[in-house]
């Protein structure tokens, strides 16, 4: 089976007059049709920038892709000109964002914003696009959809706005949906509803999903595979069950052990990862996580570990010199 999206050695840098920020440093991953990949990492780890790079949506002044390939259905997105890229964005790749309030245009109606992509990509007439927009709003569970079409975003609640965003992203039946922290700005009950909705839609439509998040609780409920990013690099990739059972990278271990658990003893403290992520304009040789890692040896500071296969899963990878030692120790 060939991959739907195959990203290889992606590099993105932001250049300012005084410094160069290495936002994405050689990121590689692939997504199979119908598969859900969760990309996990803290703010500034390059999760969102990687996605924007692939889609050619980096802000016009600043960031630029400086190397790599992004094969989508066999076509390298990074080689496409803007016009060709526009035929893919919104049509074959749908995108939903973190904050549904600021991601919707406040002065245009919900109906207009949903039908916009349909009219652009499928050349539908106003009336046809409107009918499709009503169907889409129904699909995402907005009651009395035909009456809500002429509403503006501020007349929708937070959860309904995110539903409308999903309707918008799905309008042209994309093969891949990229969701950039779509539940972070929502409260927990709404979060659960949106998760259920996306799971249902993914199953019905057989689309692949990239779910960017820093919330490991969400990951376990939606993902097939997990990819962990740190300081613009992939540090680990694994199937979701393996990831929770035997995280191999010390950073993944840190993330998982900083989660509160139901079976924790009362009064037990959370274990945060100490230290700060590195300054992306001053990356040096060596593992970027080394300064915060409890397992650092001299080699970690000297040489950057490359992402290598690990374990029995052929797609599982980890970038740590001591992954095998640490894995073996904890499996005992």
């Amino acid at each position: 089976m060939s991959a739907l999206l195959d990203v290889r050695d992606l590099h993105t840098r932001f250049r300012t007059p005084s410094s160069v920020i290495n936002a994405v440093n050689g990121v590689s991953f692939s997504v199979q049709p119908g598969e859900t990949l969760a990309i996990v990492g803290e703010s500034g780890s390059g999760k969102s920038v990687s996605m924007l790079s692939i889609q050619g949506l980096l802000p016009p002044h600043g960031g630029a892709v400086e190397g790599g390939k992004a094969l989508f259905q066999g076509i390298d997105l990074l080689q496409l000109d803007k016009k060709e890229m526009r035929k893919i964005n919104g049509a074959k790749i749908g995108m939903i964002f973190q904050d549904p309030m600021s991601s919707l245009n406040p002065v245009l109606t919900i109906g207009y914003q949903i039908s916009e992509a349909l009219r652009e990509h499928e050349m539908l007439s106003r009336g046809e696009a409107r009918r499709r927009a009503i169907d889409l709003l129904r699909l995402v569970g907005i009651p009395m959809a035909e009456n809500r079409l002429n509403d503006y975003p501020h007349q929708f609640s937070g959860g309904m706005r995110q539903r409308a965003m999903i309707a918008m992203a799905l309008s042209c039946n994309p093969a891949l949906l990229i969701a950039d922290e779509p539940t972070t700005a929502l409260d927990v009950t709404i979060q659960a509803q949106i998760l259920r909705l996306v799971r249902r839609l993914r199953a019905e439509r057989g689309m692949a999903l990239i779910w960017i998040t820093h919330d490991l609780g969400v990951v376990s409920r939606i993902a097939d595979r997990v990819m962990v990013m740190y300081a613009g690099s992939v540090v680990e990739e694994a199937g979701v069950l393996d990831f929770y059972a035997t995280p191999r990278h010390p950073y993944s271990r840190g993330l998982l052990s900083s989660l509160p658990r139901l079976d924790d003893n009362v009064g037990e403290q959370l274990r945060p990862i100490s230290g700060q992520p590195p300054d992306l304009s001053k990356l040096k040789a060596g593992c970027p996580f080394a300064p915060r890692c409890p397992y650092t040896i001299e080699r970690c500071v000297r040489e950057t570990p490359s992402l290598v296969p690990t374990g029995s899963d052929p797609r599982a990878r980890v970038a740590c010199w001591r992954a095998n030692e640490i894995g073996a120790y904890h499996e005992q």
Partner: peptide
């Protein structure tokens, strides 16, 4: 960015 992600001109 949303508008651009829809592939609008």
């Amino acid at each position: 960015t949303t508008a651009r992600s829809k592939g609008l001109s």
